[in-house]
Design a protein around this nucleic acid. Structure first.
Lengths: 240, 240
DNA sequence: CAAAACTTTATTGTAGACAACATGTATTTT
DNA sequence: AAAATACATGTTGTCTACAATAAAGTTTTG
């Protein structure tokens, strides 16, 4: 029955990842070790191990004698994101089409089903997490341990940006979400067909859609971007 | 005077990185926490934190209840390496030419000087580490937090491969090392000139040289590759 | 004699208590 | 009154001791 026999530590790590991705923990916020350890029912040493791991994965930043901070997003961050994303997304998707196994394709389809459910239900967090999971699976399909770290980092911030700009009331955004979901179906078809060139193309198209959406928010505002505090701006204490 | 006021933990982390890169700790070897903690003069909990961090950086792999293993190198690893390396190297070098600061260029020149010294002295480990440092600095110049994780992972295995195949007696390899050092000078010149296209080109050329060298070792042998044990093959205990 | 189960040993995982560091506040001094 | 210093508080960093898990060796049994 697939009992959840995972350790408290891995549950803790996964939950913290989820909270960072959904912005339940906002960029730049400092984390309290004692508080977190208690809430996950473990002591501080193992919690600190988890935080180190998450730091390695790019979810948090560690400051000596000043604890862990949810990875901040700055203006420079967004610029770099725009440079790296199309390259890594295209490359990994191409490789996914070349290497995907039937089992992985089945998982991708399941994930896509859940993604569409989340859109239908208007659940912002579930939609964002579902999207992250979808592209993570494609990353696993690519099966390249050298590209995966960059892909995962891109997905962290892509997901957080998606959460920031989510707005269920604006109609054109709802349409874009449906379009994105349709593109996901094309990802699946092309990967299943082993069409590397086609997969790379849809990856770029998918990115262009997302980029246009992000730019429609960033460009008009131009100066103040709602992407959380820079590191050391003000140190917002307290997680919840 | 730049006193070494870094914590024992960061010294420990750096030394472990060095030992992994130089193959003083061979791929696939399991690490003993008690032994390592004692040798670095710290207790096990902080050492475990360091190991978690190194796992996040790709130096080691953690197995639940079975400790930390120096990241193994398999045949698949090498294939993936050949796919990802040219892409990431070219991209980061191009960005380096666009973004490098004078201070960074100065550091790069210092590093290159040390690199040439190591070649002259026939010091394999110093040469390998110097090369790693050189390309790491270029990565810092690129200043893109999304590409850096992949670059660093590539450099880990590139360095280890370089150590594996190092042979001071074969003359054509010595020539190739000199050629590589000359290319490093071209890196510096092109980055300093802000020539992005030229930098990307030399990055590819540099990669091609390295690739040819690696292939000259791998192809003739074809079956058994001296790249360390696969995970779970035999579990070589003991670090030193 | 071979195989399986039990016991022993070594290593990893965790908890609680203590030390060190940083920050904010109050007091003192100019 | 303003600034600097000393103090108090809270949070991070570390250590020692203990618990749990896995491997190895030994014994027992078919």
């Amino acid at each position: 029955m697939e009992v959840d026999s995972r350790s408290k530590k891995s549950i803790c790590a996964e939950d913290l990842r989820r909270r960072v991705l959904t912005q339940a923990l906002e960029p730049g916020v400092y984390l309290d070790e004692t508080e977190l350890a208690e809430s996950y029912g473990i002591s501080r040493p193992p919690l600190r191990e988890v935080l180190r791991q998450l730091a390695g994965e790019g979810y948090v930043v560690l400051h000596e004698n000043r604890g862990a901070q949810v990875a901040p997003m700055t203006h420079k961050t967004l610029r770099n994101f725009f440079v790296a994303a199309p390259m890594i997304y295209a490359a990994t998707t191409r490789l996914a089409a070349e290497h995907a196994t039937p089992a992985q394709i089945a998982r991708l389809k399941e994930c896509q089903w859940a993604f569409r459910q989340a859109i239908k239900n208007g659940d912002a967090a579930e939609r964002a997490l579902g999207n992250e999971r979808f592209h993570s699976i494609i990353g696993e399909m690519a099966d390249n341990e050298y590209l995966m770290p960059s892909l995962k980092r891109l997905l962290i911030d892509h997901t957080r940006i998606g959460m920031t700009f989510y707005n269920p009331r604006r109609l054109e955004l709802a349409e874009q979400r449906d379009l994105a979901a349709d593109q996901h179906d094309q990802f699946i078809a092309l990967i299943e067909a082993g069409d590397a060139d086609g997969a790379a193309e849809i990856a770029v198209a998918h990115w262009e859609l997302s980029r246009a959406q992000i730019e429609s928010f960033v460009t008009p505002v131009s100066i103040t971007i709602p992407l959380g505090r820079a590191p050391g701006a003000q140190e917002t204490r307290g997680a919840s």
